[in-house]
C-alpha cells in the first residue's frame, strides 16, 4: 500500500525567524555581499575554535613570566597579539589584574561586547538584561549568585566593555601552584575567572 505523505505533518517547517535569516542570506549572497562558505567559517571559528583556552594561556603566561605580565598590563592589545590573538574588529584589549584589595568584573551594559579572540562568544548569562543591568548596581549580590563571595576588604570594580575596548580579568594565581608549568596552570583558569564572576580552580 503506497504511503501517503500529504496528510501527515512530516514535511519540513521553518520557524519564522529561521526563514527570515535564510531570506537575508539569500539576498546578500545573490548581491555578492557575503559568501556562505565564509559565514560557515566565521561561525565555526567562534563557536568551536576560539574559546577561553586562549585567555587561559595569556593568564598562565602572565603568572609565570614577569616581563610578559608587565607587557600585558601596559599594552594588552599588543601583548595578546604577540601570542597570536588578534581581534578581527580592531578593538583594543585591556587586562585588569585582580589584587587582594580589588576584584574586577566585566560587563557590557549596552549589548554584549566581549573579548571574542580571548574567550570566544559570550555565554547566555553575559547577554542577559539581568546581568547587564544589575552587576553595575549591586556587583556583590550578583557575584554571590555565581557562588563568589568576596572578602569585605576587597573592593569590586566593574568595567563596562564597548565595541572599541574589551577587558580581560587576570585573576590571582592560586596558592599551592608554585613551580607549575604554564600549561598546567592554564587548566585552572576558567572562563568565569576571566570575566570576574568566578575564581580559578584550586589545585586538588
Amino acid at each position: 500500500m503506497p504511503h501517503d505523505h500529504h496528510d501527515h505533518d512530516h514535511d519540513n517547517h521553518l520557524e519564522p525567524m529561521d526563514a527570515r535569516v535564510r531570506a537575508l542570506e539569500t539576498i546578500l549572497t545573490r548581491k555578492g555581499l557575503v559568501d556562505p562558505a565564509a559565514i560557515d567559517t566565521i561561525i565555526d571559528t567562534y563557536a568551536h575554535r576560539v574559546g577561553p583556552q586562549n585567555g587561559a594561556a595569556v593568564v598562565a603566561r602572565a603568572w609565570t613570566d614577569p616581563a610578559f605580565a608587565e607587557f600585558l598590563a601596559r599594552d594588552a592589545t599588543a601583548a595578546v597579539a604577540s601570542m597570536g590573538y588578534c581581534g578581527r574588529q580592531g578593538e583594543h584589549v585591556q587586562a585588569v589584574f585582580n589584587t587582594p584589595l580589588q576584584h574586577n568584573v566585566i560587563v557590557c551594559t549596552l549589548c554584549s561586547c566581549y573579548p571574542w579572540s580571548l574567550l570566544g562568544l559570550p555565554p547566555v548569562w553575559y547577554k542577559s538584561p539581568a546581568y547587564r543591568s544589575r552587576v553595575v548596581i549591586e556587583p556583590r549580590a550578583v557575584l554571590a549568585e555565581f557562588g563568589l563571595v568576596l572578602p569585605a576588604g576587597q573592593s569590586v570594580r566593574v568595567w563596562d566593555s564597548t565595541a572599541e575596548m574589551r577587558y580581560l580579568v587576570v585573576p590571582m594565581r592560586p596558592a599551592g601552584t608554585e613551580g607549575w608549568a604554564p600549561e598546567a596552570l592554564a587548566a585552572l583558569v576558567t572562563r568565569e575567572s576571566m570575566v570576574g564572576t568566578g575564581l580559578p580552580q584550586v589545585p586538588a
Binding site: E15, M17, D18, R20, V21, R22, L24, E25, L28, L33, V34, D35, A38, I39, D40, I42, I43, Y46, A47, R88, Q89, G120, L121, P122, P123, V124, W125, S128, A130, Y131, V142, E145, F146
Partner: peptide, 26 residues
C-alpha cells in the same frame, strides 16, 4: 542567573551572527 553556556540556541542565530560579522568584515 546561571544558564547553559552554548552561544546559540538555534542554527538561525549562528547564521545571523555570521552574517553580521561577514558584513562588518566587508
Amino acid at each position: 542567573m546561571k544558564t547553559p553556556d552554548a552561544p546559540f540556541d538555534a542554527p538561525w542565530q549562528a547564521q545571523a551572527f555570521g552574517l553580521a560579522v561577514a558584513l562588518s568584515d566587508a
